[in-house]
Simulated assay, not measured.
Amino acid sequence: MKRFFDAELETFRSHLLQMGERSIDQTRLAMRALLESDLKLADKVIEADDEIDRFEIQIDDEAIRYMTLRGPVASELRLIIVGMKASHDLERVGDEATSIARRARKLAIEPKLELYGDFPRMTNIALEMLRDALDCFVQEDEQKALSVIRRDSEVDNLNRLVYRRLTSYMIEKPDTIARALELMFISKSLERIADHATNIAEEMVFLSKGQDIRHSGISQYVPPKDGDV
């Protein structure tokens, strides 16, 4: 039987998903600002960072109010705690998007380096991971969450590839060092976004099955038996 205040939990869940979509949108816009050398778009991303911060504050307030007033049962408490942790990761994604936009703004007024080839792929993988992790918040699908975690190595590998290419380029053309370093930092931001998606996916496994795999890794994941909670 549904509890009387289930609607409050659905609102909480909805706000987290809205925050996730906003974080995804901001990252895509920041990368577009980089690839198109669009100063106005970069400024738009930077100005919108406060919106994601407000989402985090709102979600924390809703979580604290629910825990204080509603006496949540175990499954509800897991949902609230995981939601608060996920909102923190999403706020960090927003910060990374802002960092990318700031660097894109610097690069937009410099001669362009044609070394952006791996960035669209990195962006797509990282944001697909993030969206899938958020989907798990609705579906409580631990297999999908595990799939997100496994993909993190793809972004790590691309980040290392970008670093190697940019290092070689800086050695050959020392006058590009400052711009190449900015691209390295952008690559690192994308890698961190994938890490935040992984964090959320790990929390979704905890939400779905009550199993904490944050430091043990998915190799230690034990599929629950029928009837386990």
Rank of each mutant, 00 (worst) to 15 (best):
D50H: 08
S208F: 01
E182V: 01
M19Q: 06
R165W: 04
S168E: 09
L29G: 05
L130F: 15
G71V: 08
R78L: 05
R102C: 04
R22Y: 11
A33Q: 01
E110V: 10
E76W: 01
L79A: 06
I218C: 05
I24D: 11
A201D: 11
G210K: 00
E36T: 13
F185I: 10
E114H: 03
D95S: 13
K188H: 13
R164I: 01
M1T: 06
Y116Q: 13
R103C: 03
L107V: 02
A145H: 06
D141Q: 04
R121V: 11
I109S: 15
P223S: 10
R3M: 12
P223D: 02
I149F: 11
S14P: 06
S75H: 05
A126I: 08
V73A: 14
M19T: 09
A133P: 03
Q18G: 12
R179P: 07
I59H: 05
I177S: 10
S168G: 05
L79F: 11
R32L: 14
S14H: 15
S168P: 05
A194W: 11
K85G: 15
I46N: 01
T167Y: 07
S216N: 00
E62N: 15
R13T: 14
E56I: 13
A178N: 11
V148R: 03
E51P: 15
M170L: 05
M67V: 10
M31C: 09
G117T: 14
R160Y: 01
D175W: 07
R105P: 00
V93C: 09
I59Q: 08
K40W: 09
I100E: 00
I218Q: 02
V138N: 10
I81H: 01
R65Y: 07
R105F: 06
R28D: 15
V162K: 02
T68L: 12
H196L: 02
S14I: 03
E96C: 07
E203W: 14
Q26C: 08
S23L: 08
Y66D: 08
Q139K: 06
R165N: 13
T11V: 13
P72E: 03
D38H: 10
Y116L: 03
L39P: 04
A33W: 01
N124S: 12
R214G: 00
E8C: 03
V222S: 01
D175M: 11
N157P: 09
I171W: 13
L161K: 02
D60N: 14
S99Q: 13
V148H: 05
S219T: 07
Q18K: 14
D53W: 00
V73I: 12
R70P: 04
E96G: 00
V148Q: 07
R92C: 14
M31E: 05
I64V: 15
D43T: 09
T176G: 09
F137S: 04
E154V: 00
A101I: 05
